[in-house]
Design a protein around this nucleic acid. Sequence first.
DNA 1: CCCTGTCAAGTCACG
DNA 2: CGTGACTTGACAGGG
Length: 296
Amino acid sequence: MRIGYPCINRTIGCRGGRTFRLSSYTEKRLLDTAGSNIACLKQILEWNLQNHILFFRITSDLIPFASHPVCTFPWQKYLGDELAQIGCFIEESGIRISMHPDQFIVLNSLDEKIVERSIAELFYHADIIDILGLGSTAKIQLHGGGLYGNPPESMARFVRRYDRLDPLIRRHLVLENDEQRFTAADCLSIHEQTGIPVLFDVFHHRCHNQGEGITEILSKIGKTWKTSDGTMMVDYSSQHPAKRRGSHAEQIDLDDFRTFLETSRPYDMDIMLEIKDKETSALAAVSLAKGDRRFV
DNA sequence: CCCTGTCAAGTCACG
DNA sequence: CGTGACTTGACAGGG
């Protein structure tokens, strides 16, 4: 078991996801920004290692506009050495990496142009992971997409589009249940038809489910991860006490997290904490998880 | 320096 | 029909 947090570290003072406006795109701007993002990524990973945080989600903004038509610049050539070095550090340290393309990536869209853009963005994500030199245990987590008033047909469309994806993307892709469209059960059904591993989001499941208990659903989801996929990944968060249903908590609710650790005891997993205060909650979770026999 | 309108991209619920 | 939520404010131009 590893504990992780996504994209941003507010303690160490650098930002790994700086971007700029499309209208100010130049090759120099791209290289400068991406270079500083990559340097920050390295700092974050080193800080994480010192703090026993061995799971991290790399921001999709690492190389701004990398999949946009405006970017014809071979950034891989210029930034590859630095990324490869970080990749070695990741491997030596036993760090696990995930990425999570944002909401605009919709594989099952009715609009072919959206699908094309989505696939270009997935290639960019796979590119980052491959340049880092990480294998098939580094994952890109994606939601099922839209329902478009016809859930079965929308699910079937996801399956068809997945089957046609380049293996370079497929080897890293995992499917995550979301808060209002595809439940964990839907994801398991898509897994049956495609073999795609399912990434369980505990909080989304609480908001949107078909009545299954956590232990029950985890036993099924655990089986969707093959040895080559690595330990199953799980997203964990809890409800913000004041905000509307589905809003992520500002800080980790340690009682709830303790309960989750107990409930999930039979299964090993790497846990991504989707909590607003990021590394602060991750540190608290690490302290708690140190008493768990699964924790590395 | 501070203020604030706007930012590549999609879907859906809510008011 | 406009806005906010999602993993997340922050860039950039004008004062």
